[in-house]
Design a protein around this nucleic acid. Structure first.
Lengths: 151, 151
DNA sequence: TATTGTTATACTCTATAACTATA
DNA sequence: TATAGTTATAGAGTATAACAATA
């Protein structure tokens, strides 16, 4: 019925995200990181580290792939593994000091670069946008959860 | 200064997009298409076809990669190439009848599946969301355009 | 000379399934 | 038995640069 108001939202969501991706891509590659590697570094930033399982859930990267991505970051001494004290099967991945430094050195300039774009919306509208994206995001996650149920 | 209202928008944008991606991924893979291939099919859907150049601009896929993705779709007879009448250098890619059929058979059910999630927002809010995403997307594109200028 | 698409290369990501070690 | 992470494999995507044909 109201498909006519769904398509525009979807189109703008994709377009807006892609614009963000595009604007970020050059910054990321300048660091010598792939998008997946950046995803990991960004997710680990400002945390004490987390298990591969958690990391996989947050980044949409499956565990087999994650091992390889983590290996490449570890080769560059940006992340390190250590045993999870709570569960002998689990491994925790966290940024090394070098990784922390990269994260800090990169994020501030990156946000500063993006900031003017976000200022195209007045503050109140930004808040409203965030709220609605959250509602829609929750609904999309709930919708997906129905997939496993009845197939 | 107002970084505190930027981060939430960014986080929700990413999360919402990823929720959409996740919800779509299983549908797409059920067709035996990769995300990039789906991207091409979706972009070509309801068009007369377009050049590789246009397709690359719309999908963020670089020309070298595009050749390979198009080849794999052509192997499955979902797309076909023909010479651009206006420019001897250009090649137009378009959906075959089989590709059109796939597009039609896939999009209606896919939208029908996603629809309930979008109905989590009343119609007026959906329209507002689309408008703000558009403003932000435009601003992000404009921001990116400044990159090439002063380096 | 510049542009369109292809080719070649080298690497990364990806899904999947089998494997290990813990639980 | 189930779960966390690794390994192995085969295919696909990716950036880049060199190339042919056309503008």
């Amino acid at each position: 019925m109201s498909k006519c108001t769904v398509i525009p939202v979807l189109r703008e969501l994709v377009r807006c995200y892609q614009a963000f991706e595009r604007a970020s891509a050059e910054h990321i590659r300048a660091l010598g990181l792939t998008p997946s590697q950046f995803d990991i570094v960004a997710t680990l930033g400002n945390t004490e580290g987390m298990t591969f399982k958690e990391l996989g859930e947050k980044t949409l990267i499956t565990k087999g792939t994650l091992t390889g991505v983590a290996d490449r970051l570890a080769d560059r001494a940006l992340v390190e593994r250590f045993d999870c004290p709570d569960d002998g099967r689990a491994t925790i991945l966290r940024l090394t000091r070098k990784g922390e430094r990269l994260f800090q050195e990169v994020f501030a300039p990156h946000m500063a670069f993006l900031l003017p774009a976000f200022e195209s919306l007045p503050e109140a509208e930004r808040a409203a946008l965030a709220r609605r994206l959250r509602v829609l995001g929750d609904a999309l996650e709930a919708r997906r959860a129905t997939l496993g149920k009845a197939a």
